[in-house]
């Protein structure tokens, strides 16, 4: 079973982004369970979403405390939230950042990858400088990083999930997918 935790801020599209990932795995005939943080969410406040993916029916009904991988939409959260908490050995932390992976250090045995999702999203006409819409780019990057999801499934999930401009979202996801997959943005293991 694959367990993911996604961190971001209210309004950044953490919930829709995680739902896109869930739907993409579902398109690949996996069993999927997706839930946002059980809380009262406000714009700008830290939010989380959780995703379980399995070959078999999922019977666990509780929060994910030891995720295999973590996705971080907003690096400023590193100042206030213990992002790597509970991550399994050698798990990936994918961060939306212009910085290189080796700029980030976690008190855990994990790997870090970065993707400039802000830049990719803006270049594809999604959102504004102050509020880029990055969920499609982040899902594309994650699929490229793990390599277990074809980009076509991400594209199909985007078209059935996003409320507006599905083509631009798909383009952003594809760009992030290939940048991560072929190493245009460097991914590096750090401890």
């Amino acid at each position: 079973m694959l367990e993911l935790r996604v961190h971001g801020r209210g309004g950044q599209g953490v919930v829709v982004g995680s739902a896109i990932l869930g739907k993409a795995y579902f398109i690949e005939n996996k069993s999927v369970q997706f839930f946002p943080e059980f809380g009262v969410e406000r714009r700008g406040s830290p939010v989380q979403a959780f995703l379980r993916v399995s070959e078999d029916k999922i019977r666990c009904n509780y929060s994910i405390s030891e995720p295999d991988n973590i996705i971080l939409f907003d690096e400023s959260l590193l100042n206030s939230v213990d992002i790597a908490k509970g991550i399994k050995n050698n798990g990936w932390i994918l961060i939306n950042s212009k910085k290189r992976p080796e700029c980030f250090h976690f008190d855990a045995n994990c790997r870090v990858a970065t993707i400039d999702a802000d830049g990719i999203s803006l270049a594809n006409g999604l959102g504004t400088e102050t509020a880029p819409i990055i969920n499609a780019a982040m899902t594309g990057a994650f699929a490229g990083l793990l390599g277990d999801l074809p980009v076509e499934s991400i594209a199909a999930a985007i078209h059935s999930s996003v409320p507006a401009r599905p083509d631009k979202n798909e383009a952003a996801a594809r760009e992030a997918f290939y940048k991560i997959k072929f190493g245009a943005i460097k991914q590096k293991a750090v401890v």
């Binding site: 739902a19 869930g22 579902f26 069993s31 999927v32 369970q33 997706f34 839930f35 946002p36 059980f38 999922i58 009904n61 509780y62």
Partner: peptide, 12 residues
């Protein structure tokens, strides 16, 4: 049914 565990969780 349970708040959030069922109400807000997406499943097939």
């Amino acid at each position: 049914y349970d708040a959030f565990f069922t109400s807000h969780t997406e499943e097939p």
